[in-house]
Design a protein around this nucleic acid. Structure first.
Lengths: 335, 335
DNA sequence: GTGAAAGCGCTAACAC
DNA sequence: GTGTTAGCGCTTTCAC
C-alpha cells in the first residue's frame, strides 16, 4: 500500500537510518490506515528475543510476590517486556516443569522466587536461559545474578530489642530451610540468642496458615511458655495470630510479638505489631535491573544486598515479673 | 539423528496416528538425547495459537487478583497455557496500551479485570482477540463472555441484618463507579435503604488506602455520625480501619462495621469483622473455563453469576440507645 | 535509499 | 507410514 517492499517497512519499524523521510511517512501512514501491528512471535523467531520475562513464584497468593512483581514490572514494562507468570504452588516438581515451559517459550530471562532451592537438576535446567536472576534465593552451585535480603540484621535488631527488655525465653516459628530467607533468619536467631538459645523454642514448618496456627498452639502452651515470639515467615503470621487469640494471650503483656514483613494485618492489629521490614518492590526492581544488564552484556554475576529494618510498634514489652517497666507495658494499652 | 524427516518428528510431537511405534520410539529417544524442546514461538507462527492468555488487572497489589489469578491458572496451566500479566496500575491510558501489547503478542485470549470499563475505544481494541472474558466488569456495547458477581444479594443481606438490629443511619464508602462491582453495591444500597437513604452517608472514592482513611475521618465526625458503616471496596478497608482507630471508635459499640471480601485483616481483627464474602478463586476458574470454551467453538456469549454471602461475625450490634441488646454488644468484647 | 531473497523452527498438504 | 515442500511474518545480508 505504501508502494515499498517489506524490507523498507521493516526498516521503518526498527527505525534504521537510510530511509527517506518521505518513505518513512508513507509507510507510517499505511500502517495507520491498515491498523498494522507487527507480530511479536514472528519477530522473535527471527531475532531470537521474545521480550518476555518469566517470573516463577512459589505461591502467588503471598502478597509479597505481588509487590515484587509490581516492582519488576515497573522497570520491565517501559522497555516493552512482558511478564509471564508461573506459579509453582510450592511444589518442587511443578517448579521444574514451569521452568521448562518458560524455556519452551524462549523467554529472554527468568526471575526466580523459587519454592525449593535444592531441587535436583535445577542448575542444568537453568542453563538454557540467557539471563537468570535469583530473588533472595541461593541455588547450590549456581552462580548467577542475585538480589538478596539482609535478613540477619533485622533479626539481630529485633533480638537486641527483646533482650534489652529482659526477654530470655524467645521463640521463633519459621518456614522451612529450603529457602534462603528462613536459613538466614534461623542462623541469625541462633547467633543472637547465644547461650540462651533453646532448641525447643525453635520451630520450622511449611508456610501455611494451619501449620503456623498449630505450631503456635504447641509452642505457647502454658508450661514453659516463651515470653516473646518472632514470626519468621510472612505467611505464618495470620495463623499464629489466630492461635494467640484462641489461647487467649495478651500482646504484649503475656507475649511480646515480632513478625516479618509489614502487612496490613500487622500494622493495623491492636496493638500494632513490631515488624522486621523490607521493601519488596525494591527487590523486584533491583532484580529486573540486574536482568536487563545481563541481557545487555556479559560480566561476572552481580549481587545486590537489600536491607531489613526492625520497627518498634506496640507489641513488645518487658516480660511479666521482670521488674522492668516500659511505656509499652502500660496496662491501658492492652486488650 | 533418528533418521527420519522433520515431518515425522512433528507427527510424533503432536501425536498423530500413522506413526509406527518403532519410529516413535526412535524419535523420542533422539529428542531425549538431544534435549530437544519444540520452539513455542515457531509453532505458534504456524498454527496461529500461542497458548498464552493475557491477564489484565487494575492493580495487582490487590490480593483479590492474586486469588483470581490462581483460580485461572489452576485451569489454564494443565492445558499448557501461560498467563501473561499486565498491570494497568489503575490508569485507563495504560490499560489500552497493555491491551494493545497483548494483541501484538497474539495471545489466544484475554482475561480482563479492568480498572476502567468506560475507556473510549475499548470495544474496538478488543475486537482483535479471539476470546475475551470480562471478570465482574461491564463494558458498554461489548457483548462477550463474562463472569459476574451478585454483589446486590450480599449488600441486601448485610443491610437486612443491620436494619433488623435497629440501624437507620447506615453509611457506605465505596470505590468509583467505573467498575461494575461498585455500581452494583451502590444500587443495592440505595434500594435496600429505601426511605432511610441519605445521600450524605454515601461516599465514593478512589480505592486507595489514604482516600479510604480520609473519607472515613470525614464521614465519622461526631456530628450526625452514622451508627453503621459498610465498606464497599476491599482496598478501602485498611484505611478506614485505621481512621476508626484514630478517632477512636469502638466496634461495634460506637459503630457497626461490615466490609467486602474476606481478608485476613477482617477475619483476625478484634472483633472479627462481618463480611460480604465471595470466592475469588472460583471467579478466576469460571473465567478461564469460559475462555477455553470460547477458544474451542462459537456460540452466543455466556454469563456466569457467582454468589456473595453475608457472614456475621462480631462487628455489628444494635445502635447505642436503641434499647435493643444483643450478645455482640456485650461490653466485655470491646476494646 | 530501496528491493530481492534467504531463513528462523515449525506444521500441514500432498506425494509416494 | 513417511518424506518433500511451502509458507507462517518477520529481519537481514547482499545487490543495485
Amino acid at each position: 500500500m505504501a508502494r515499498v517492499s517489506v524490507s523498507t517497512v521493516s526498516r521503518v519499524l526498527n527505525d534504521h537510518p537510510y530511509v527517506t523521510d518521505e518513505t518513512r511517512r508513507r509507510v507510517a501512514e499505511a500502517m495507520d490506515v491498515l491498523q498494522y501491528r507487527p507480530d511479536v512471535a514472528a519477530r522473535s523467531m527471527r531475532t531470537g528475543a521474545t521480550r518476555a520475562i518469566g517470573f516463577v513464584v512459589a505461591d502467588f497468593s503471598n502478597p509479597l510476590f505481588s509487590a515484587i512483581a509490581m516492582g519488576a514490572d515497573s522497570v520491565l514494562h517501559p522497555l516493552g517486556y512482558s511478564l509471564v507468570l508461573a506459579n509453582s504452588v510450592r511444589d518442587p516438581e511443578r517448579e521444574t516443569e514451569v521452568i521448562a515451559a518458560l524455556g519452551d517459550r524462549r523467554v529472554d530471562g527468568l526471575l526466580l522466587s523459587l519454592a525449593d532451592e535444592r531441587t535436583a537438576g535445577l542448575r542444568e535446567r537453568l542453563e538454557v536461559f540467557r539471563a537468570v536472576v535469583l530473588l533472595d534465593r541461593d541455588v547450590p552451585g549456581l552462580h548467577c545474578d542475585r538480589v538478596l535480603t539482609d535478613h540477619a540484621t533485622g533479626i539481630h535488631e529485633a533480638l537486641g530489642h527483646l533482650r534489652a527488655l529482659g526477654h530470655r525465653r524467645i521463640a521463633m516459628i519459621a518456614g522451612t530451610e529450603v529457602q534462603r530467607a528462613t536459613r538466614e533468619r534461623l542462623r541469625a536467631f541462633r547467633e543472637g540468642m547465644g547461650d540462651f538459645f533453646d532448641e525447643r523454642l525453635l520451630c520450622t514448618v511449611d508456610p501455611l496458615l494451619e501449620s503456623g496456627h498449630d505450631a503456635a498452639r504447641h509452642l505457647l502452651e502454658p508450661r514453659d511458655r516463651p515470653t516473646a515470639l518472632i514470626v519468621a515467615h510472612n505467611q505464618l503470621f495470620a495463623g499464629i495470630l489466630s492461635a494467640i487469640r484462641e489461647l487467649p494471650l495478651r500482646v504484649p503483656a503475656d507475649l511480646s510479638l515480632v513478625t516479618c514483613e509489614d502487612v496490613d494485618l500487622a500494622r493495623l492489629n491492636e496493638p500494632p505489631i513490631d515488624v522486621i521490614n523490607r521493601d519488596p518492590a525494591a527487590l523486584g526492581q533491583a532484580a529486573a535491573e540486574l536482568l536487563l544488564a545481563r541481557l545487555e552484556g556479559n560480566g561476572p554475576p552481580r549481587e545486590i544486598m537489600l536491607p531489613t529494618h526492625f520497627e518498634i510498634r506496640s507489641s513488645t514489652s518487658a516480660p511479666q515479673g521482670s521488674g522492668v517497666l516500659t511505656p509499652d507495658s502500660d496496662p491501658e494499652k492492652e486488650t
